[in-house]
Structures are given as C-alpha cells and as structure tokens.
C-alpha cells in the first residue's frame, strides 16, 4: 500500500526538490502548510501534487510572484492550459498536371509506383485525353 504521510525529507525526495525548496514554497504560500503540529507535522500526496504543479508552472515561465498572486496553483494551471495542438498529418503525394484543370495524384502511402511508372501512367492518360481519341 502506498504511503500517504511523508516527513519533509521524504516529500522533497519524492518531488525531486531540496528540503529548502519545500519550505520556501510553504512560506510563499505556494503549497499548503504541513498537517499536524510539533513533532507530528507531516505532508501528504496533496502537498506532493502541489509541488509538482508549481514546478510545471515554473517550467512554463510562470514566476513565483505570479503563482503567489493567483493563490491556487491548480486553478492557475487549468486556466493556463492550452488546447492541445492539432495533430499533424503528413500526406505525401505526387501530382502531375495532365492538362489545365486535370490533375493526376499518386498517394505515396498506398501507391507503390516508381517515378518512371508514374510518368508512364501520366503519358498514357494524356494519350487517353487527346481529342479525337476520346471515347464516349
């Protein structure tokens, strides 16, 4: 079962920050103060998540001052959340103009033709399009 109470050292190690950083974050009001009093002071996964959120925000260039002024790190992160960028789709194709307004397209993902073969097909298409030879 996962441990849910940490002392200062354990929390810092888990969040991969120094013990001093945890104390600074608490002093600046960026994360919640420890639970309990005296020797019984301890931290929980909530503290861990708060530290990780502050680190993510800092990595995005948000200053501690800005985080401090906003108050709640989680809501600040949500408000800054940007829609994920549209997924990039790469579509490679070779297009050959047969005559004005008529294009021949080879899809590279599905068509395994060589450039010579493509040119050959294009030549035959042009022949098929030649006036007089057009079939009805």
């Amino acid at each position: 079962m996962a441990k849910i109470e940490y002392n200062l050292g354990e929390l810092a190690d888990k969040a991969q920050v120094s013990r001093r950083t945890v104390r600074f974050y608490i002093a600046l009001g960026l994360i919640s103060p420890p639970l309990g009093r005296g020797r019984g002071r301890h931290y929980t996964d909530t503290h861990l998540q708060e530290i990780l959120t502050v680190r993510r925000l800092q990595a995005r260039g948000v200053s501690l001052g800005q985080i401090q002024r906003h108050g709640d790190v989680r809501s600040l992160e949500s408000s800054l959340a940007e829609p994920p960028p549209p997924e990039l789709q790469i579509h490679l194709a070779t297009r050959i103009t047969l005559e004005p307004g008529v294009l021949l397209e080879f899809d590279h993902d599905t068509c395994g033709r060589t450039p010579t073969e493509m040119q050959d097909i294009a030549r035959r298409c042009r022949e098929a399009l030649t006036p007089g030879e057009r079939k009805t």
């Binding site: 002392n7 200062l8 013990r19 005296g38």
Partner: peptide, 15 residues
C-alpha cells in the same frame, strides 16, 4: 546540509 535543514525545520516546528 540536508540533515541540518531537517533538524532546523523540526526545531521550528516544535516552537
């Protein structure tokens, strides 16, 4: 260094 900080913090926590 890290152990000192833990002792320091613990002392402050005890008042």
């Amino acid at each position: 260094r890290e152990k000192s900080l833990e002792e320091y913090d613990e002392a402050l926590g005890r008042g």
